[in-house]
Design a protein around this nucleic acid. Structure first.
Lengths: 344, 344
DNA sequence: TTTAGCACTCTATGCCTCAGAGTGCTAAAT
DNA sequence: ATTTAGCACTCTGAGGCATAGAGTGCTAAA
């Protein structure tokens, strides 16, 4: 960690960041000296800024331009200088309105709404990772016969996740047989997380059950299949077009790269998962992100929980020039709402 | 319908369209006379082109430029001149591979895959409307109790559509009571399309049932709710970034408008539904589209069916400068595959 | 009816200039 | 020892201008 700056340098750095976030233009010494009434002439500021540049907090796009913050500059700002802005009343209202638990029983809907709210309150793109099915605990399983040849498997987890899948049943099963198998499975699997339902466990059960009821090969294959399939998780996006409003994305090529990224759910998932610090809000600025395509961006993430168990991650993605205080404020609030909503 | 052109004019129009589709540059008389070896000098072509312009099939972007087709020109081309290209072997392979029915029991997956294939084979954005739940016929309904206070309603249609929803049950119901209600409902609703399950019908049933079993207010509200909710349908997109490859979309503002459109499912749904001619493939060029935001685009749509019953619509959206023959060829093929896959 | 030839038009490109913004340095002021 | 005023210097971006190139329309000859 670089040494701390003296207060005057801090004030100047802060002024540059704030100004640059608003205008997207390099900030000159004159502007700082004027707008932030710190009673110093532009010449003095110039000297300080030269220092800040030497220490790596600021850069000039070219010799005769103002300064813009480096990633290090943003980092310092976030760690030491940032004011957490609270929500505006409008935002507050919009948030609580669209997340009122009233009409939203389905978790998908809550998540989707959250993505919308988050993106519109921050003017950035938002990503939300749904509950991680495979980390939920098995609650119970049902098989509904649909007709002679098909059945519907319904899998329910402790977090209220419901997964269903139509299966073919080669051999016809009587109600009684079916019931027998299902209740055996329920008994054995209860309380395990989906992650723990490994192939080997399934095989074991299969052997077990095989002795008692030979017909059920098929049912197991299906259970396996339905679990495998869930390896990748849905990531919900909101406000993907917001990124087009940022002047740093006026280049069609950059836009293409970002949108391409947005189309690849597994990648998004990986990006979000990498940041999960299990606790609180994480800010990744520029190259602090692993994925190459977002190294000009900042990703801010938080996690939401149900009864203290981490369910998923919410994120905001935008250019490094972003209103950190505001975004973090909004995200705090959103995570709180989510935690409350989901725990009831 | 405008009068038909003589053969020479047709050849020239065709040459201009084909050339322009490839190069995206205005086509000059010299180019036509050379590349399409029709044994005429550029001067002659020039005269004919002037005629074609007067008749509204071609335009010049400026006085000293080549010509590009107007919407009328494209229309004439599609109606009278177009060669339907068959698929390349590669495309063919990709198509049959990714749509092999093997691993895809879920309809969502089939649709999703189709969207991907369609967009990558055409290099355009594809839109696919999933099966219209509300036009499916009611098959049967189950209610699974989850715990004391919650149940899972499962609704199954004749087209294999499965819709489930968790409901709260204020009053506890015994298994027997539940069973009674459910079987009554099944009997009454069987065979109706979801559209036909109107609020008034539900009310009627409610009265009916009320006499016999007072507790079930709640269950009905839930059925109603779950139906209402399905009014809007999912539209699956593929290759949204393809649109960025088109030179006509190098303007960030246009891009924003398109992407914005893509984010609004209900609008997309409306656009797709408007074109449903119930039969065969429909081409809407430019202003032939109702929606203002796609009047510089061409939308080509087709419908897929299961047992002769129209399920949904697939579409390809791109600039009016598009390889009509190829897109239509691919779409034909895809629709055939879909029809076959779904009917088995 | 077709074509060669030519004058004309329009765009896109590169080059130049110049104003404006902002800097760094030096010397004076506090 | 700081701070500030003043000044020369640098770099960008916008505007103006000339030019090459592509393509046309028209006229007159084939």
């Amino acid at each position: 960690m670089a040494a701390l700056l003296n207060e005057r340098k801090e004030q100047i750095l802060k002024a540059v960041v704030i100004n640059y976030v608003i205008t997207a233009e390099p900030v000159g010494s004159r502007t700082v000296s004027r707008s932030h009434r710190m009673g110093l002439s532009s010449a003095t500021i110039r000297n300080e800024m030269a220092d800040l540049e030497e220490q790596g907090f600021l850069v000039q796009p070219h010799t005769s331009a103002g300064r813009i913050p480096t990633q290090l500059g943003y980092r310092y700002y976030v760690d030491n200088l940032m004011d957490l802005s609270d929500l505006s009343d409008d935002d507050e209202l919009a948030l609580s309105n669209s997340l009122s638990t009233e009409k939203m029983r389905e978790i998908e809907q809550i998540i989707n709404n959250s993505a919308r709210v988050l993106s519109s309150a921050t003017n950035q793109t938002s990503l939300i990772m749904g509950p991680q099915f495979r980390k939920s605990a098995f609650h119970h399983l049902r098989i509904l016969p649909l007709d002679e040849k098909r059945g519907l498997v319904v899998l329910i987890t402790d977090t209220g996740f419901i997964k269903n899948k139509v299966i073919d049943m080669q051999q016809q099963l009587s109600q009684a047989e079916l019931h027998q198998v299902v209740s055996y499975l329920n008994q054995k699997l209860y309380g395990l997380t989906i992650d723990q339902v490994t192939t080997s466990l399934i095989n074991e059960l299969k052997r077990d059950l095989f002795k008692r009821l030979e017909i059920l090969e098929q049912a197991f294959i299906l259970l396996e299949e339905s679990l495998k399939e869930e390896k990748q998780i849905r990531v919900f996006l909101g406000g993907t077009t917001n990124i087009l409003n940022q002047p740093e994305f006026k280049d069609v090529d950059k836009i293409r790269r970002m949108l391409n990224l947005f189309e690849q759910e597994p990648l998004l998932f990986k990006i979000l998962e990498d940041t999960s610090s299990e606790d609180n809000i994480v800010v990744r600025i520029g190259a602090e992100n692993e994925h190459a395509d977002i190294q000009e961006c900042t990703l801010i993430t938080g996690t939401y929980k149900i009864h203290d168990k981490t369910l998923g991650t919410v994120g905001v993605l935008g250019p490094t020039r972003m209103d950190y205080g505001h975004v973090i404020g909004v995200m705090r609030r959103l995570v709180n709402y989510l935690n409350k909503s989901l725990s009831s």
